[in-house]
Write a protein that binds this DNA or RNA. Structure first.
Lengths: 147, 147
DNA sequence: TTAAGTGCAAAAGCTTTGCGGGTAG
DNA sequence: CTACCCGCAAAGCTTTTGCACTTAA
């Protein structure tokens, strides 16, 4: 992610904090900046390791709590695929995942036709849909070779 | 799930075991039958609690291991949404999920237009796609009322 | 017979909680 | 000033592992 986009996201975060009365702390800023530097889907642990270089001594607890806060504020997303570890994702725009059912590897994929998916009417369920993800399930190259 | 369908699934499991040389044990049978009785998405723990009435003394370890085996054999599926606990699902046919980003509740949804999704060509990635799921992300009724 | 599954107990993650002290608004 | 956040340590849950015994094929 280029510097400009990153800065914009941080500024957006600051504005949202101000307007919602949520304290904009150095730790939170550092954690958001760190997540934005990942191209893939880091775990909380990986974010902690990475943010430590920028903010030595920051606690794991703070990282866990802050990541959750960022998700609630819609600044990052939380992805969870088989493998049972929560992963975070700086991408808030639509994209999709290929998930291998054998080794549980996850690969990002973009596809216009998927993005144009007709979102069903869920108003009868009281559900307001903002976003969607498609999980394509199958077998990756490596696992296919093994068989 | 009605008795007949359930029995068919158990028989399918038995046949697959025979042909693949995988031992068809009483425990595995009991676990599969138990999962098939859930309408929703039970956790490994819930499956263990339920199977215990049918098979007292069965170990948690066996339940964990067997659920994974069943997934690998394609007899049940594994669903993982925010909330970080793996859930299992007797449904192997296509269906989709509404996921609340606040409370992480998961609701099943069926929609023909979603089922007709154009699956992109992933052969260049070496990925063979068998199946897909759409995860619709938003806010559920209860959480919307709170705000 | 023999390769694989099962149960137990213990360990190994990952994540949350309680609380005293600190900081943003 | 006051409410909320942070760090620490410890607990809590879910899941996995090693090993001796049992079982399906």
């Amino acid at each position: 992610m280029d510097k400009k986009t990153k800065q914009k996201r941080v500024e957006l975060f600051e504005r949202q904090c101000r307007s919602q009365g949520v304290p904009f702390t150095v730790q939170r800023r550092a954690i958001l900046e760190t997540v934005l530097e990942f191209d893939n889907h880091p775990t909380a642990e990986q974010v902690h390791d990475a943010v430590t270089t920028r903010f030595p001594g920051i606690s794991r607890t703070t990282v866990y709590r802050t990541l959750e806060t960022l998700v609630q504020m819609g600044l990052i997303t939380k992805a969870c695929h088989p493998g049972s570890v929560v992963r975070y994702d700086r991408r808030i725009e639509v994209h999709h995942h290929l998930v291998c059912q054998r080794c549980e590897e996850v690969v990002d994929i973009s596809d216009e036709r998927l993005d144009a998916l007709p979102v069903p009417d869920t108003s009868s369920l009281g559900f307001e849909v903002f976003d969607f993800r498609v999980q394509l399930r199958g077998i990756c190259r490596r696992c296919r070779k093994k068989e």
